[in-house]
Design a protein around this nucleic acid. Structure first.
Lengths: 251, 251
DNA sequence: CCAAAAGTGTTATGTCTACACCCATGA
DNA sequence: TCATGGGTGTAGACATAACACTTTTGG
């Protein structure tokens, strides 16, 4: 899954010449793997939290926007390139020493599937791990306040799926409505009625656009499905409501 | 409106003994004044942006949470105390010099009405100004990236009113449903049908609770209205939808 | 009595949910 | 022909918007 990378080592420090900015950026990168939602984690090889898992993180450089910083940190520490990174919030790290990590700003990104991950110098492992495992404190010990950041990222993703078309970012360029539905089911943690889902998606102009092509039928048969691509709409009006979180089947 | 304060001058710098944290906090404080929405601004008496208006802002101190920092900065620079401050987002200041304001974290608060505002040392004026004027670049020149922060704050307030009971924070402890409706109209920038609004608010359990008391009738007469107080519900289910922003009457 | 504002009723229209049912494919 | 999954139909429950109407006050 993760391969040792050969490129030059990132410093993971502030840019030489610039003053220490004390601003860290964290990346919450979600990806679908089959019907399962996974998140990108790295295992730290250096203090603090050596040996713990963590979200990809690093320091912003002087003169760099936060978006550029998180994209660079993500690429340098895992080799992963994310298209759109959306700000999740700012976190005052409880373990902050005065200059380093005075504050960290978390960003959220969606990928269609798990991609090859580099293990950068300073880390001992890096991979996409199932959400359920990543959020379980008994099984995964996350560095800094990354447990809270990850929880917030999941909650943000859940409401994003209700109100925007961002779910298509968790699908490949061409996808069936079933694939899109499994995204909703994986993120929300409960099943979604297929006929009604189909109608609501197609009734929202610009959510998905038919490609005219068909997907191959599954190995067990079944009617071949129409292939769609993401449309230009961003806001879903009306929204796609998830189940009230009374009976939780999710994480 | 604004009174000169006599208390000790805040330093508006990082705490003595702590290292420079480079983390600024900004406060977006909304208040209702009659049927109008206003925002708290201060006129800067010091560089940078001397003479410009700005949101109350200052630096976080070492060891201080962001919430504590913004509450302290708000109180020190205007004398205003806000109950609940909600994080709006992190902004990389385009005009940042390496150590100061490397990043600023904005917070949002609601007050029932304009309160007395102190003019702290380092500022030449401070008051609640109408949203329309504050957002109009030709009439109000805001320091830093505060124009964008203010726009984001208004947009956040608009969606908060749709999905949560936060609108009650813009009302006094006891209020009529008409008062609550004017809050929605002021923030959304369009009128709301009174009968339907009433029904939806009362149908949402825990949104408002009747006090049993009645408000006095207005100067021009009219049936006296029931007084309500805020309930314990936070999320509105179903939401109170604002008008689609096709015909904008607002800001 | 009139104007003003609170509050109730009503109706047409739309939306959501749950589930029955049909269609096309692989084995 | 059967299991599997794609796709359509539909009926009841529920929510919404628009507006007519009644009630209670001050002038």
């Amino acid at each position: 899954m993760a391969s040792r990378r050969n490129t030059a080592a990132p410093t993971d420090k502030s840019a030489p010449g610039g003053a220490a900015t004390a601003v860290a950026v964290d990346a919450v990168v979600f990806a679908m793997d089959g019907a399962e939602l996974k998140v990108l984690l790295v295992q730290r090889g250096l203090a603090p939290f050596k040996g713990s898992w963590a979200l990809p993180t690093g320091n912003a450089r002087a003169g760099e926007t936060l978006e550029a910083a998180v994209a660079r940190v993500l690429a340098e520490s895992t080799g992963v390139r994310a298209g759109f990174l959306e700000q999740l919030g700012a976190y005052r790290d409880p373990s902050h020493d005065a200059l380093e990590r005075a504050v960290s700003v978390a960003y959220l990104a969606f990928l269609p599937g798990p991609v090859d991950v580099d293990v950068a110098p300073g880390t001992t492992d890096a991979s996409f791990v199932p959400m359920r495992r990543a959020l379980d404190r008994r099984r995964t010990d996350l560095a800094f306040d990354h447990h809270q950041v990850l929880r917030d990222g999941l909650e943000r993703a859940r409401t994003e799926l209700e109100h925007t078309s961002r779910a298509t970012a968790l699908c490949p360029p061409a996808f069936t409505l079933s694939r899109l539905r499994t995204v909703y089911e994986a993120v929300w943690g409960h099943s979604v009625d297929a006929p009604n889902f189909r109608r609501k998606v197609l009734a929202t102009p610009g959510f998905v656009v038919p490609t005219g092509r068909m997907a191959a039928a599954g190995p067990e048969g079944g009617k071949p499905a129409q292939l769609y691509r993401a449309g230009k709409a961003v806001v879903l009006q009306p929204p796609l409501y998830r189940q009230q979180s009374g009976g939780r089947r999710g994480f």
